[in-house]
């Protein structure tokens, strides 16, 4: 076997074994005034993976996922989502790409003036205008069943509890069959039981919808439940990366304190 053939074979083997990168962030920096929130951030999300980003409040976690969806424009760096560079996309192309991304906001961000049904139909009608009424109703019923809130169909968001709002928000996100899920502190403000239910739901979504997810949190129980890989942010920089077990063994004082070992 010649050297070239050997090299080609090695490359193809490597390509087969290396997981597909769904999101790749390179040298991402963003500042708000004099405050540098992200400083040359580098990371990636593999296909089918649950990547948990841990960090204290203000470390730039939420800003990172808002940059990924182009809700915030970074000062420098590149973000590649499903092989497309965000900064190169036209408005229509960006809109198409966003259809493949589900974003669960920290507050749930349900539309106050709409019922649960209208909230769920809203993204569906906008992303797929060819759907028939029966298909829409079926999809709404299916996602509501999957989050266990079929009875809340005609309720207003104000009538729902915090946990129910998060579930409906999750249902609204998965109704359009996203490829990527971005969760911004999905368990914040919830009691431990509801937090665990949300964590279980996140795992179920990944399993049933075959999504790749980035989960922003500082809830260690949630991270333990769902993380395949963990990225630890400190002051806008990656402090450590690895599995949760690897990070728990890390000797860094700051990481130790995050795991409650100090």
């Amino acid at each position: 076997m010649s050297e070239t053939e050997l090299h080609t074979q090695q490359s193809s083997t490597q390509a087969l074994t290396e997981p597909e990168k769904i999101i790749e962030v390179k040298n991402l920096s963003i500042s708000f005034g004099a405050q540098h929130v992200l400083k040359n951030l580098n990371f990636h999300l593999n296909k089918g993976e649950n990547l948990v980003i841990l960090g204290k409040s203000g470390s730039g976690k939420s800003v990172t996922i808002k940059c990924i969806t182009d809700l915030l424009t970074p000062d420098s760096g590149t973000i590649e989502v499903l092989g497309e560079k965000i900064e190169d996309l036209e408005r229509e192309e960006l809109s198409e790409l966003r259809k493949k991304i589900g974003f669960l906001f920290q507050s749930g961000a349900l539309y106050d003036s709409m019922t649960v049904k209208d909230n769920l139909e809203f993204p569906l009608l906008r992303m797929n205008k060819k759907l028939k009424r029966d298909e829409i109703n079926e999809k709404v019923k299916k996602v509501l069943d999957s989050v266990g809130l079929a009875h809340a169909l005609n309720k207003m968001p104000a009538e729902l509890s915090g946990g129910m709002r998060k579930r409906i928000a999750l249902a609204r996100t998965i109704i359009v069959d996203p490829v990527i899920m971005l969760y911004d502190e999905p368990t914040t403000g919830l009691d431990p039981v509801t937090s665990r239910e949300i964590s279980v739901l996140i795992n179920e979504v990944q399993k049933n919808y075959e999504t790749s997810s980035i989960i922003i949190t500082h809830d260690m129980d949630c991270a333990r439940e769902i993380a395949d890989r963990v990225l630890m942010l400190k002051d806008g920089e990656v402090l450590a990366e690895g599995t949760l077990e690897e990070l728990e063994k890390n000797e860094d004082q700051w990481i130790k304190s995050f795991f409650g070992k100090n």
Partner: peptide, 21 residues
């Protein structure tokens, strides 16, 4: 007040990521 509260509660951003301008 309506748009302000939508902004504060991230509803406008949610709309944006739902491919709605």
């Amino acid at each position: 007040a309506e748009l302000g509260s939508m902004k504060v509660t991230e509803q406008i951003e949610a709309m944006e990521v739902s491919a709605t301008m």
